[in-house]
Simulated assay, not measured.
Amino acid sequence: MTHILFVCLGNICRSPMAEFIMKQWLTEQGQSHLFHIDSAGTSGWHNGEDMHCGTADILDGLNIDSRGFVSSQVRPQDAEKYDYIVAMDANNLQTLQQLLTKDAQHMFVITDLLPELNYPQGVPDPWHTGDFEETKRLLQASCKPLLAHITAQSV
């Protein structure tokens, strides 16, 4: 089983959206049994909280059940627990690189898999932009390339 951790700053907007969109996509592909997907934040600002209502609304609109989600913070032991740690942006990747010791090819910014979309700094934070639809669009677009990246790494 491959373990993937999606990481943003507070674990209430982007990373939970990525977690649940990827889980749903893997289920649709008949591959959910091959993966364990989680999310966390680099800050502890929202530990124990539910996801942002904007993220919950997007997931509801996709008919994705996100009940039971609780925000959590990245821990040093996550470097050993997860095969892939996928940051939502360059700032969070930098924080992860300082916090964790992990092979660089297994820790990256998700938009690195989507160079044609020209988001070199990562997925914009809808907490600031208010654009949860943009976040959804980028995260949905990343599912297939992420699976391809993981598959290529395991060959």
Rank of each mutant, 00 (worst) to 15 (best):
E28F: 02
P115A: 11
R14Y: 03
L113H: 00
Q153S: 15
A18Y: 06
Y84S: 02
R67G: 11
P124L: 05
G54A: 00
T151L: 08
T55F: 08
K136R: 12
H46A: 14
G30T: 00
Y119L: 07
P120A: 08
T151Q: 15
V123K: 08
Q77C: 09
M88I: 06
G122I: 01
N118Q: 15
K102N: 04
V74C: 00
I110C: 01
N11L: 00
G122P: 00
T55G: 04
A87K: 11
F132G: 00
S15A: 04
T135K: 03
C13Y: 06
D65H: 11
S154V: 04
I21Y: 02
D65K: 13
N92W: 09
A87Y: 10
A90M: 13
S154N: 12
F20T: 09
N47Q: 15
T151F: 01
I64P: 02
L138K: 00
W45F: 10
C13M: 14
T151N: 14
P126N: 09
Q105I: 13
F35E: 01
P120Q: 06
C8I: 03
H33F: 02
G30S: 08
P124G: 04
Q140V: 09
Q73R: 14
T101S: 15
H36C: 01
I4W: 00
Q97W: 06
P76K: 01
N63F: 12
I85G: 01
V7H: 10
D89Y: 03
D50Y: 12
L96N: 04
T2Y: 06
V123I: 13
Q153K: 12
L117K: 08
S32G: 06
G44K: 05
D89S: 01
H33N: 14
G68D: 02
N11F: 01
L93N: 02
P120R: 13
I58K: 00
T151Y: 03
M1I: 13
P120K: 12
V74E: 07
I12C: 01
N118D: 15
F35P: 07
D125I: 00
E49C: 12
K102R: 11
I150L: 10
L146W: 06
M17E: 00
C13E: 08
L59P: 00
F20M: 12
P126G: 07
T42V: 14
T135E: 09
E49S: 15
Q77H: 15
K136A: 10
L34Y: 07
R75V: 14
A148N: 12
K23E: 12
F69I: 10
P145N: 12
P115E: 07
I64N: 05
R75A: 15
Y84L: 02
